[in-house]
Simulated assay, not measured.
Amino acid sequence: MVTGQAGRAAPRRWVVGWTGASGAVYGVTLVKELIAAGIQVHLVVSDAAWRVLKEEMGWDATKRREALLSGLGLEEGDERFVYHPQGDIGAAIASGSFVCEGMAVVPCSMGTLSAIAHGSSDNLLARAADVALKEGRPLLLVPRETPLNAIHLENMLKLARLGVRIIPAMPAFYSGPQTLDDAVRFMVGKVMDSMGIPHRLYRRWGEPDDQA
Rank of each mutant, 00 (worst) to 15 (best):
I39D: 07
Q40R: 08
H42G: 01
L43I: 02
L43F: 03
V44G: 03
V45I: 15
V45K: 00
S46D: 05
S46V: 01
A48Q: 08
A48H: 06
A49R: 02
W50T: 14
W50K: 10
V52W: 02
V52I: 14
V52A: 09
E55T: 12
E55V: 07
W59V: 10
A61M: 09
L69I: 11
S70Q: 15
L72I: 12
L72P: 11
G73M: 08
G73R: 02
E75F: 04
G77D: 10
D78M: 10
D78Q: 07
R80V: 11
F81S: 04
V82S: 00
Y83A: 13
Y83P: 12
Y83E: 13
Y83C: 11
H84D: 10
P85T: 08
P85F: 10
Q86Y: 06
Q86E: 14
Q86D: 15
Q86F: 05
G87Q: 15
G87C: 04
D88R: 12
D88V: 08
G90Q: 13
G90E: 12
G90R: 11
A91K: 00
I93S: 04
G96Q: 01
S97Y: 00
G102D: 05
G102M: 06
M103D: 06
M103V: 14
A104H: 01
A104K: 02
A104N: 02
V105A: 00
V105T: 09
V105M: 03
V106P: 06
P107Q: 06
C108A: 13
C108L: 04
M110S: 14
G111K: 15
G111V: 10
A115M: 06
A115C: 08
I116L: 14
A117E: 09
H118S: 12
G119Y: 02
S120Q: 13
S121W: 03
D122C: 07
N123K: 07
N123W: 02
L124P: 03
L124W: 03
A129K: 00
A129F: 01
V131S: 03
V131L: 03
A132H: 03
A132N: 01
K134T: 12
K134M: 04
G136W: 00
R137T: 04
L141S: 08
R144W: 08
R144I: 09
R144M: 11
E145L: 05
E145K: 09
T146W: 09
P147R: 06
N149K: 07
I151V: 15
I151K: 07
I151W: 09
L159R: 05
L159F: 03
L159P: 10
A160I: 04
G163F: 08
V164Q: 03
V164M: 02
I166M: 13
I167N: 01
I167P: 03
I167C: 13
P168F: 04
M170I: 12
M170L: 15
A172M: 04
A172S: 13
Y174N: 14
G176H: 12
G176T: 11
P177L: 10
